[in-house]
Simulated scan of single mutants.
Amino acid sequence: MEDLISNVLFTASIWALPVLIAITMHEAAHAYVANMLGDPTARLMGRVTLNPFAHIDRFGTIILPVLCVISGWALAGTPFVFGYAKPVPVAVSRLNNPRRDMMLVAAAGPAINVVLAFCAAVLLHTVSWFPEWFSAWWQATLINGILLNLVLAVFNLLPIPPLDGGRIVTGLLPYELAVRYSKLERFGLFIVIGLMFLLPYIGREIGVDLSYAMQIVMFGVKNLLHFILMLTGQI
């Protein structure tokens, strides 16, 4: 029992910092860019800040990642952590150039996650500087930071409203088509759940691989990871 508790606590600890930083910076980037482009809504609500408490959603930032860690460790020994923060409010009509600027606001979140993954990869060079008792934790935390930020970046770029990729696509489409496409946002959560969880589950039950959305995400993560590791001299 002590080993089980120790392993769960260690696993939770090496995910806690990456989750908190990745989600906080993602939302803060949205808020910052929106304010820079003319919409102060998020700034006036205190969301242009690196204070994680301004962005934390009790369920999405705390409970859900913990459940992922516990259930993933118990079932497979290699937990996949997922979470989210409070969405940043954006008044599109207040942006200087609504269609263009909304794309930039949307792109800011995934962009900062890629930057964070790059920084974590650079910091891997510091692992050997520390004593063994700390270096193992530090290395695992950095690796999780790289993977989590890349997964968040690629996942959020899927072209499904209200994900960031969906909002970028909406900005690129002709106006009438963009209006129709944006109406998918009310069903966006169900579409994401269907593609990421329901279809793969059905596929497993019938013996067919239907995890197409996850394959797309992991393809993007794999290639971004390879590029970042090359840039930072890790490979």
Rank of each mutant, 00 (worst) to 15 (best):
E2H: 15
D3I: 11
N7A: 15
N7S: 14
A12K: 05
W15P: 02
W15F: 12
A16M: 07
A16E: 06
A16L: 05
P18D: 09
P18R: 01
V19K: 01
I21R: 01
I23N: 00
M25R: 00
M25A: 10
A29N: 04
A29G: 03
H30Q: 02
V33P: 00
A34G: 09
N35G: 14
M36W: 11
T41K: 01
A42K: 00
R43V: 08
R43H: 13
M45T: 10
G46Q: 06
V48C: 06
T49L: 11
F53P: 09
F53R: 12
I56N: 03
R58D: 10
G60W: 04
I62V: 13
I63Y: 06
P65M: 13
V66G: 10
V66F: 12
V69E: 09
V69R: 00
S71E: 14
G72S: 04
W73G: 03
P79E: 06
V81T: 05
F82M: 08
F82G: 09
G83V: 01
G83I: 05
Y84K: 04
A85Q: 07
V92Q: 08
R94L: 12
N96Q: 12
R100V: 14
R100H: 14
R100D: 15
D101E: 13
M103E: 12
M103T: 13
V105D: 03
P110M: 10
A111L: 08
N113P: 13
V114P: 04
V114H: 03
L116G: 02
L116D: 07
A120L: 04
V122N: 06
H125Q: 14
H125M: 13
T126N: 01
F134N: 05
S135A: 11
A136P: 05
W138N: 05
Q139G: 03
Q139E: 15
A140T: 09
N144K: 04
I146W: 06
N149Y: 04
N149V: 08
V151T: 08
V154I: 14
L157Q: 00
P161L: 01
R167F: 15
I168R: 02
I168P: 00
V169S: 00
T170H: 03
G171Y: 01
L173G: 04
E176F: 11
A178L: 11
Y181H: 07
L184K: 05
L184C: 06
R186T: 15
R186S: 15
F187W: 15
G188S: 08
L189G: 15
V192G: 04
V192P: 00
G194E: 11
L198S: 01
P200F: 05
Y201D: 07
I202Q: 01
G203A: 03
I206Q: 09
I206G: 02
G207E: 05
L210I: 14
S211I: 07
Y212D: 11
A213D: 13
A213L: 08
M214Y: 10
V217N: 12
V217Q: 11
V217A: 07
M218Y: 14
M218S: 08
G220S: 02
G220K: 00
L224E: 05
L225N: 13
H226Q: 15
H226T: 15
F227V: 11
F227D: 12
I228P: 03
M230H: 14
T232M: 04
Q234D: 12
